[in-house]
């Protein structure tokens, strides 16, 4: 492989204004997605999804299944559409006026973009954890209790207390905050805040959790805690995680999908993707990262 390309890939471009792709990578002709985009026991089935921001197409014809009770990692260079794709899964894109989604996205074989679908209910079933921890400026307790209260999941205060405690325990935060449940959530450290956000999401008892670079703002120790947490959570939830760290993808996921310029290039078992990628672009991205 040519030296220049390796260097280029060693430092993946960041930001929206990514430098133009090298000629080399553009010369590789795009075919269909390689690997196994389908899977058995799928929670989500997405078929021929296109996403536009005004006239700008951010996602091109992506078809991908997301298996129940496993972790799928979405990787790819910055600006390739990972977040955009992720946000189609809970219709978070609805909040952006200029955003338009085409194609079929089925959750348990139900089209979530169907007219009669209620995006609010959908978001209760498909929770989301964001790149930057965004606890509400309320107490730790109220942060976690927020979802259950809105959806009326508990009948009385003690049930709510139990639910909050359980969510905090599952998120591995309870020990650290049990003495200050009524202190503001914004007063926690970054890693704690992110686990609080995870606890907040779990408390609604969703079926799927979407995570957009949940550890990118955290130090290695906090990251390790989150990764451990993800491993435990997959018992009960289906998890889709966007990450820039290939080590992280390798550690936490069972399947990996590689996106490039709005297209889904390759999908497969994580082991296979990282040891033996089938597509040249995938290989370049991965080897570039690992040096």
């Amino acid at each position: 492989m040519n030296e220049a390309v390796l260097n280029e890939l060693a430092e993946p471009p960041t930001g929206v204004n990514a430098p133009p792709e090298t000629e080399d990578s553009l010369n590789i002709e795009y075919t269909d997605t390689v690997g196994q985009p389908m899977c058995e026991n799928a929670k989500f089935r997405t078929k021929n999804v296109n996403v536009f921001y005004a006239d700008n197409q951010a996602i091109h014809d992506v078809s991908l299944d997301i298996g129940a009770h496993q972790v799928i990692a979405l990787i790819g260079p910055s600006g390739c559409g990972k977040s955009t794709y992720l946000r189609t899964l809970n219709r978070m894109n609805d909040t952006i006026d200029i955003c338009r989604v085409e194609g079929q996205i089925l959750l348990d074989e139900q089209d979530i973009y169907a007219k009669k679908q209620d995006p609010v209910l959908l978001r209760a079933r498909v929770g989301m954890v964001f790149q930057k921890p965004n606890p509400f400026p309320k107490s730790i307790y109220d942060n976690v209790a927020y979802g259950p209260k809105i959806h009326g999941l508990t009948r009385n205060k003690s049930e709510l207390d139990d639910l909050v405690e359980e969510a905090l325990i599952k998120a591995g935060l309870f020990q650290e905050v049990k003495d200050r449940l009524h202190a503001p959530g914004t007063g926690l450290s970054g890693g704690q805040q992110q686990r609080l956000c995870i606890a907040r999401t779990i408390a609604v008892q969703p079926e799927v959790i979407l995570m957009d670079e949940p550890a990118s703002a955290l130090d290695p120790i906090a990251t390790a805690k989150i990764e451990e947490l993800i491993n435990e959570l997959k018992e009960n939830f289906t998890i889709v995680i966007v990450t820039h760290s290939m080590q992280q993808a390798a550690r936490v996921s069972q399947r990996t999908a590689y996106f490039h310029m709005g297209r889904l290039i390759e999908v497969g078992e994580t082991d296979q993707i990282f040891t033996n990628p089938a597509h040249e672009l995938t290989e370049k991205y991965i080897t570039g990262r690992f040096g």
């Binding site: 809970n90 609010v120 978001r123 929770g127 964001f130 965004n134 927020y146 809105i150």
Partner: peptide, 8 residues
């Protein structure tokens, strides 16, 4: 987005 993401 945090609030909407919880189904509010």
């Amino acid at each position: 987005e945090g609030s909407l993401g919880l189904g509010a």
